[in-house]
Amino acid sequence: MATTKRRSMGQISGENVVIEVAWMYYHEGLNQQDIASRLAISRATVVNYLQEARETGLIRITLAAPAFTTHRLAVDLCARFGLRAAYVVPDEGADAEAAFARVVRGAAEWLPDLLAPGDRLGVAWGRTVHDLVEAVEPHRIEAMTVLQLVGSMATPYGFTAEACSTRLAQRLQARCLNLHAPAVISRADLAAELRAEPILKAQLDQLQGVNKVLFSVGTCAADSHIVSSGLASPEDLAWHVARGAVGVLCGRFIDAEGRPVSGPLDARMIGITLDRLVGLEMGILVTPGLDKLEATRAAIRGGYVTHLVTGLTVAQALLAG
């Protein structure tokens, strides 16, 4: 009769016990009670060790992208809107924050599959992009460059535009090119002078070579991030909304068809222009909630999107519209 060898905690020390527990659970297929019996520890301790293994990066749990990109709604989105790919995350029964977290996590897991050696990836800003970047597992993509698309600004979330690009570059072991200037200048003539400065001009010129972009869209609601960050005043927002603006893309306003709604604010901005975001090799849009539904439709119609990451609820709403 076969016997199971028991090992006590005294025989396994420090980090090794976490690895041992993770190996038994994920590679040997033992359940938590079996592991507890083998190591002479409680089941609760096994649960804690498995949690520690995930939090410290010893274990990475991912689901294969085809599970989401071949979902019926993902296929329907591509057919309806001419997208090259869509990644639809289940969110039934999830509240707004839980749905947000699921979509951001899904985008973080899919992103490395969409990148290739030598890419020049432009990165926008905002909570969605920031949280996505934080969720990306470290990868190395050869000869890759990450570029900040919009200048710096204040933010109520405690991060900056350059933090998004810098952090992603670190995750991907890529070169990082940031814009060393505010996103909005007080006067148009001063902004023009800054754009002509050799150092900043060289940085802006680099944006011309971007072949892929990662972004979310902003809304034109009164509490829009474009206002809370100081990029636009409530008066600026009202001015653009009165002229048909329904969304914000990299700090620029767009109408329901994705066309630029240009105004005095554009002359004061430091960052990529909307015409440079159309016709790229890849435009990766992440839409985590229904509040961005109208802006998402506009971005798709404007030709800025080739790849979409969203939740099931948003996907159904897009298709119903």
Results as ranks from 00 to 15, higher is better:
S165G: 06
T62K: 15
G321K: 11
R54L: 11
L190V: 15
G126K: 01
T69A: 11
T70H: 07
N31G: 12
S228Q: 08
H180F: 13
A232S: 05
L194I: 11
D205N: 03
P198T: 03
G118V: 03
L214I: 03
R120I: 15
Y87P: 02
R72F: 04
L147R: 06
L121V: 03
V123E: 01
R38S: 08
E257S: 05
A44F: 04
S224R: 13
A53N: 00
D34N: 13
C176S: 13
L39A: 04
T160C: 10
P90Y: 06
E20W: 04
K212R: 08
I272C: 10
V21T: 12
A53V: 13
L318S: 08
T62F: 10
M269V: 12
S13F: 15
R102G: 15
L63A: 14
V309F: 02
V261D: 00
P264E: 14
L231N: 02
R38A: 11
G302Q: 10
M24E: 01
T313A: 13
A192M: 00
S13D: 09
G289M: 12
L63S: 14
S228K: 03
L115C: 07
L63I: 10
A65D: 07
P198Q: 05
V136T: 05
A22G: 06
V103L: 05
K212N: 11
L265D: 01
W23E: 08
A238W: 03
T219W: 09
S224L: 04
G209P: 04
G82K: 07
E15C: 07
A242H: 06
A242V: 02
I254G: 04
F68C: 09
R127L: 15
I300M: 01
L179N: 06
S229R: 02
G271Y: 11
T145G: 06
L83A: 01
L249V: 00
I19N: 07
A108D: 03
G10F: 14
P182F: 05
M269F: 09
A64D: 15
A124H: 07
R297L: 10
A44T: 13
S165Q: 01
V88L: 00
L280S: 05
A299M: 14
A79S: 12
T287R: 03
L58Q: 15
P260F: 01
A99H: 01
R175N: 12
V123P: 04
A96Y: 05
G209W: 08
P182V: 14
A222T: 04
T155C: 15
I254D: 11
V129Q: 00
Y49A: 12
R72H: 07
T219Y: 02
I284C: 03
K5L: 14
W23N: 05
L285T: 05
D119F: 13
A188S: 13
R43L: 13
A256E: 13
T3K: 08
V103D: 11
E257G: 14
V309Q: 09
V227M: 00
S152P: 08
V309L: 07
A315K: 10
A299F: 06
W110V: 08
D113N: 13
V184E: 10
V17G: 05
I19M: 09
